[in-house]
Structure formats: structure tokens, C-alpha cells
Simulated scan of single mutants.
Amino acid sequence: MAGWSAMAGTHEFVVPDETHARELTQALAAYGFPVVKARPSDGDGWRVTVLDEGPYPVDALGHRQIEAVARAAARIARQHSGYARGGTRCDVSQLTVLRGPDAPYVSTNPGARPPIPTITVVAPPAPAPLALTPDEAQARPVDLPGLDDIPWAELEHAHGSAEDVPELLHTLATSPADDWDEILDELFGDDLLHQGTCYSATAPALPFLTHMIVSGTLPARQRLDLCVWLLLASGRWAGSLLADADAALVQGRRPEPAGWTEEVHRTVGEQLPALLTRWEAEPSAVRYVLACLAGLHPHHGRRFGAQVDAMVREFRGTGPGAYLLLADALVDGRDDQAFALATDITAWEDGLDPGWLDAAGVTVAVKAGHVLAEGALRALNVE
């Protein structure tokens, strides 16, 4: 966004057929959007594209305003059997490009602008450093029993066969610190969790991360990295449910998780008891991520509720403390409080969509847990 003078964008919606597309273009133009277009979408009904000329300021307030307008448009789309499918954000100088080619249906309202909801920008709580010391790890290679017993060649990741996964895991367990980040990014960023997508090889790989963490042979920085990937992996289940919530509502069904995300979430939960045995030995940065994992898996994390509660008191009034408080509420099953805490967090944490908390067909705990999974790492300020 460097160099942007002001922000504009588009909002995209999918409707089942031509009749709904025509009606929705008219409704959105009447709401105040200057140009709304509809065209057939291959295998996906009709796509309605809304031009939102703004201008919005290029700051946190501007992003919250355009996202609030997008949510208002989504509510109109739901009245016409439509659901949101993304959009774009750009400098206002790109408006000509955003208008794009003509479409079968075009509704215009020149000079109009949709109502801008009043947004109150809330100051975030103070940051707080999380320590990686003390650390008593004894650096030595980690054995990974059972690694070769898994039929990796029959599984897949983002780039095809997962037959290279055991070598990457073995290399990760034995690699010097200089190669650690590169190998870990290849294994998860490129292959097993590419762009947040789970694959058939993702869940089988996760227990080996746990084995590396609990072995006590990796330094705290590396244990933290592995815990972070477990948190990211576990959070994809709730994220995919929320992503499907709008479509499920208009199609009269329950939200469905994306492929393999449920298995990945369950697998991380199964690792949690072993991970939590490390609680007393871990520095605060690692315990922070473990507490967040406990919040996502309260069935397994509940017996460590007292430890999470103690960490809440330690970091009360800070950014990490806000997420720890949310994790603590989820661990204890206080879902209404968790929802309220998640609502508060979305008011000050940029990049977290308040619309997640409005999703239909998804439990309160899942919504609040998604805020935890998506936001907690933003507060992970390691010293």
C-alpha cells in the first residue's frame, strides 16, 4: 500500500442463476454502489462484481470501513441467495482497471456511495515481550521412530506425491540452525500447508513435530517454530468452516470443512497432552503458543487450565494477555465470555474480520477459536 493516495476496491458475490444475478445487481446499485456487473461463472452460477469507488483512507480505519461496507453488501446478497467470494483492494488510481469489460447485466448509480458505518478505532493493549529463556535443551540429532512406516508415496501435498516428506522431516530433525528456516518453510510453507491448504500428507507429518518438541534436544527457538506450525495447522479447520458459512446458509446446509482440515485439527489435539507435559520446562514464548493450542482443544487442554490461568495473570493488560484470556475462557468452556473477548479483540486487532463472529451455522467456540488462531501470533513478540 506504499504510495497509495486513497483506497478503492471490489466485492464479489456468487448467486445461483441469471435471475438472481439481475436482481442482485439492481439491489446493490440501489444501495449506493456506482457500478455493479453480473456474468456467468464456470460451474459456479453467476458472479456479481461490485465496484466500490470509496475513497477510503489508507490506514486501519479505511480498511475497517471498506470491510464493513463489504459485510453490508453481503447481507444484501444473502437476501438474493448470494454469498461473498472475495474482492480486491487497490489505489483509487486503478478505478478504470477495476471497472473492467462490459457484462450481460450492468446496473449503475453514478456518483453514489454506500453508507459508511461508524467505526470506532480502539487502541490495542500494550505489547509484551515473551521470553525464549531459560532453555535447557541438549542439542543433538532427533530420531523419528515410525517415519518410514507411513506410505508417503500414496499421500500428497501441494506439489504432488509426498514421498519427499520423510527426507525433509529427517533433515529438519538433524539440520544445523543455519538451514532450519529454509527447510521448515519448504516442508510447511510450500508443501504441507501451502497457502493455508491441508493435504492428505499434512496430518501424518504432525506427530513428528511433537516428537521433536518433546525430545528436549531442540533449542527453544526451534521448538517455538514447530509449535507455531501446529497452531496454524489446527486453525485451518475453523477457518474453512467460516469460509463456507455464507454459501452454506443460502444453500440450506451446514458449513463443511475443507478437505483434510478436520483430520489435521484432530491430530493436533491428540498431540496436545504430550506437548503440555513440557509446560514447566518451556519459556514463556513457547508456553504462550501451548496455551493457545489448549484453547483450540479444550477437551485435552482442560487439565492445564490452572497453568493457563496463571499465565493470564502474568500478562494481564497486554496484547498476549488478551489472547491468553481468550484461550483461558475456551479451555474452561466459558463460550459466551470467549465470544465477548473475541469481539473485543477484533475491535483493535487489524486484519481480523468481525464478520467471522456473525457466521451462521458455526458454534460460538469455533468462531472465538478462529479469532484466537488467526490473531495470537500477531502478539508473539519474542525477546
Results as ranks from 00 to 15, higher is better:
residue 99 R to P: 01
residue 175 S to E: 07
residue 82 G to K: 03
residue 173 A to W: 04
residue 119 I to G: 03
residue 145 P to G: 04
residue 160 G to P: 04
residue 93 S to G: 11
residue 132 L to E: 06
residue 155 L to F: 02
residue 138 Q to K: 13
residue 144 L to K: 10
residue 120 T to F: 01
residue 81 S to D: 13
residue 163 E to K: 10
residue 152 W to P: 02
residue 78 R to D: 11
residue 150 I to M: 09
residue 104 P to L: 09
residue 91 D to M: 03
residue 100 G to Y: 02
residue 135 D to S: 13
residue 163 E to Q: 12
residue 97 V to C: 04
residue 169 L to A: 02
residue 92 V to M: 07
residue 88 T to A: 14
residue 127 P to D: 13
residue 82 G to A: 04
residue 166 P to Y: 08
residue 142 V to D: 01
residue 143 D to P: 00
residue 153 A to D: 12
residue 140 R to C: 04
residue 151 P to S: 08
residue 130 L to G: 07
residue 151 P to H: 09
residue 150 I to N: 05
residue 170 H to A: 15
residue 169 L to V: 02
residue 139 A to C: 00
residue 77 A to S: 10
residue 117 P to A: 05
residue 88 T to H: 03
residue 153 A to F: 01
residue 142 V to A: 02
residue 174 T to R: 13
residue 159 H to D: 12
residue 140 R to K: 12
residue 98 L to M: 15
residue 79 Q to C: 00
residue 133 T to V: 13
residue 163 E to Y: 03
residue 111 G to E: 09
residue 169 L to D: 01
residue 85 R to Y: 07
residue 166 P to G: 05
residue 176 P to M: 08
residue 116 I to M: 14
residue 129 P to M: 09
residue 140 R to P: 00
residue 164 D to R: 11
residue 92 V to E: 09
residue 107 S to K: 02
residue 94 Q to G: 00
residue 118 T to C: 00
residue 161 S to M: 06
residue 81 S to C: 07
residue 147 L to I: 08
residue 159 H to W: 11
residue 102 D to L: 14
residue 124 P to N: 08
residue 172 L to M: 07
residue 173 A to R: 06
residue 141 P to K: 06
residue 111 G to W: 10
residue 169 L to I: 03
residue 112 A to I: 09
residue 83 Y to T: 06
residue 93 S to I: 14
residue 152 W to Q: 05
residue 103 A to Y: 03
residue 136 E to G: 15
residue 105 Y to V: 15
residue 99 R to M: 12
residue 128 A to L: 05
residue 149 D to F: 10
residue 124 P to M: 08
residue 87 G to K: 10
residue 79 Q to N: 11
residue 141 P to N: 05
residue 176 P to N: 15
residue 104 P to C: 10
residue 163 E to F: 05
residue 97 V to Y: 14
residue 151 P to Q: 09
residue 125 P to T: 12
residue 122 V to N: 01
residue 82 G to H: 04
residue 126 A to M: 13
residue 134 P to S: 07
residue 145 P to R: 02
residue 121 V to P: 03
residue 96 T to K: 12
residue 137 A to D: 03
residue 175 S to V: 11
residue 88 T to R: 09
residue 136 E to I: 11
residue 110 P to E: 13
residue 133 T to M: 10
residue 170 H to Q: 15
residue 171 T to L: 12
residue 162 A to H: 04
residue 120 T to W: 00
residue 78 R to M: 15
residue 168 L to V: 00
residue 118 T to W: 00
residue 82 G to E: 05
residue 114 P to I: 11
residue 171 T to Q: 14
residue 144 L to Q: 10
residue 172 L to Y: 06
residue 155 L to M: 10
residue 147 L to S: 02
residue 160 G to C: 04
residue 168 L to Y: 02
residue 109 N to Y: 06
residue 131 A to G: 05
residue 91 D to P: 03
residue 174 T to V: 08
residue 150 I to L: 13
residue 121 V to I: 15
residue 147 L to Q: 01
residue 133 T to A: 15
residue 100 G to C: 03
residue 145 P to S: 04
residue 132 L to M: 09
residue 93 S to E: 15
residue 81 S to K: 15
residue 105 Y to P: 01
residue 124 P to F: 08
residue 95 L to Y: 03
residue 121 V to D: 09
residue 118 T to F: 07
residue 131 A to P: 00
residue 130 L to P: 05
residue 112 A to G: 07
residue 108 T to M: 13
residue 139 A to H: 06
residue 126 A to Y: 09
residue 128 A to W: 08
residue 97 V to W: 14
residue 142 V to F: 01
residue 82 G to S: 01
residue 113 R to A: 14
residue 147 L to Y: 02
residue 165 V to C: 01
residue 134 P to D: 07
residue 82 G to L: 02
